[in-house]
């Protein structure tokens, strides 16, 4: 867990891996703005450079996002797409969802309203990949 704080609104990032590393779940917490976007970008870099196929961004605890945060998300999505991976976003809070909607970054990015919906989607993805249902 990394924490960015300068007396202002901090951003912390939790990373967890499922499925032998093919799915990486990233949970930023705080304000994803011009001052903190770099924190998320640095956390994502090793993941994007790994063999991870699915990156899940759980925005449940992200209170605010500005274009700097959106840029990091879109850049990650592009990098993943280039090598056949995909970016999933879940639990966007209203101001965050609003920002993504404004720049029309949503239709093409898979977004889930809740963790349950995301889990169901992930399970389907894994079945499609031929690995059979987990557990």
């Amino acid at each position: 867990m990394r924490c960015y704080s300068d007396g202002g609104m901090p951003l912390t990032v939790r990373v967890s891996r499922d499925d032998g590393g093919a799915t990486v779940r990233v949970q930023p917490s705080g304000s994803l703005d011009s001052a903190t976007a770099g924190v998320l970008e640095r956390e994502l870099a090793p993941i994007l450079g790994s063999a991870a196929k699915v990156l899940v961004l759980d925005f449940a605890e992200v209170t605010f996002v500005s274009s700097a945060g959106i840029r990091v998300v879109l850049a990650a999505r592009k990098q993943l797409a280039d090598r056949g991976g995909s970016l999933l976003m879940a639990n966007l809070q209203p101001p965050v969802a609003k920002a993504f909607e404004i720049v029309r970054a949503i239709p093409d990015v898979t977004i889930f309203k809740s963790v349950a919906e995301l889990d169901a989607y992930l399970a389907a993805m894994q079945r499609k990949a031929g690995g059979g249902p987990p557990r």
């Binding site: 300068d6 007396g7 202002g8 609104m9 304000s31 703005d33 011009s34 001052a35 903190t36």
Partner: peptide
């Protein structure tokens, strides 16, 4: 600086 941006936002 971005620290100052954070200060302003806060």
């Amino acid at each position: 600086t971005f620290e100052e941006v954070v200060r302003a936002a806060t």
